[in-house]
Design a protein around this nucleic acid. Sequence first.
DNA 1: GAGTATCGATACCTGAAGTCGCGAAACTCT
DNA 2: AGAGTTTCGCGACTTCAGGTATCGATACTC
Lengths: 191, 191
Amino acid sequence: MTSNTPARPPGRPRTGVNAVVFAATLSTVHELGYARATVERIAAAAGVAKSTVYRRWPSKGALIVDCLLDAFGPAPLEGTSRAELMSSTIRWIAAKIAEPGVGDAFAGVFSDAVSDPALREILSTRLQDPYRLALQDALGEPENRVLFFIDVVVGVLLHRMGMTGGPMVDADVTALVEMVLAHFADGPGQA
Amino acid sequence: MTSNTPARPPGRPRTGVNAVVFAATLSTVHELGYARATVERIAAAAGVAKSTVYRRWPSKGALIVDCLLDAFGPAPLEGTSRAELMSSTIRWIAAKIAEPGVGDAFAGVFSDAVSDPALREILSTRLQDPYRLALQDALGEPENRVLFFIDVVVGVLLHRMGMTGGPMVDADVTALVEMVLAHFADGPGQA
DNA sequence: GAGTATCGATACCTGAAGTCGCGAAACTCT
DNA sequence: AGAGTTTCGCGACTTCAGGTATCGATACTC
């Protein structure tokens, strides 16, 4: 244990502007949409130089993913029964995606990932995997079933967002909950 | 009925290269991905000038939408029972999206539409509405239920495509069919 | 033959992602 | 105190893609 206390590396420390940049990202995406929310505009909204943003995130997509991670936070995973747990998780995701800027940012980075394998890797590893593992643990379901669950919930919400420009209304979220609950009611085991 | 036979408008008629451009679009998108499939490259692959493409389609998104319309064609709507009809429709969409280039193009134009209201209008009106109306008629379901059906099927398939880079495996398509069928089994009427 | 709309080719404009280099500031270590 | 290191803001720069405009040539209709 010779170097167990890195204390602080030499050089000027980074200013604590990550939270400000995340807030500026969401508000800029919310106002202008994903494509017009350029890194330059986001940086200006945060009161920060563009080079500062690129010093911390390698690409616009990586910035968005980190911003989404910050916006979502850890999954609540509340509920005593499997049904309650799934229901609350779905409603939690729906509510988060409905927050101003979050859905637009999510759909935007998602579509960028289609033709960008590096970004797809970031999206899958940094954003999807933590929630996937937490759900596997909480639900006791195998990986492929949880991935299917995520595909259904997030896919439906993003498709509605992309087609209409707005979040899904509550009645349809309820229908989504009922449909998913019925499919997963029989517990782990089937394909 | 004075001008009931427009016959052919004056000027040089357009050459019949639409089909060639569509094929070039899909193959280019398949090879390079949506973002790198520039209009210039697509035109070159079709043996056509870029200006010719822009003379026929106002934007890249409109070209992609027309290309998808051509690739999908009319919905089969086969099956005697409601369950068979839904099942065959879902498998038909899944198979189409799995065709080389189609899924990438779909996901790409979809994500572009998120921050482009004009493109969203084109996507919704030209691509979604025809199939929505046909499904409303064939299933006897109200608009909001059919929209939910489309959200589920297309949303799930595109989310899988965007996250993994490849189409959904057959076992998961089967799970999707079962889940949707169970939800819509009770027929029209509930929310 | 006059008029019109297409064709290919090419040059151009705009905007956005990402890079680079600069001098200044804020730290740590000696 | 001073050397070394890293960040900061600022701005110029490169690259690339969507889209526009202009050109002479071509293929039609009237």
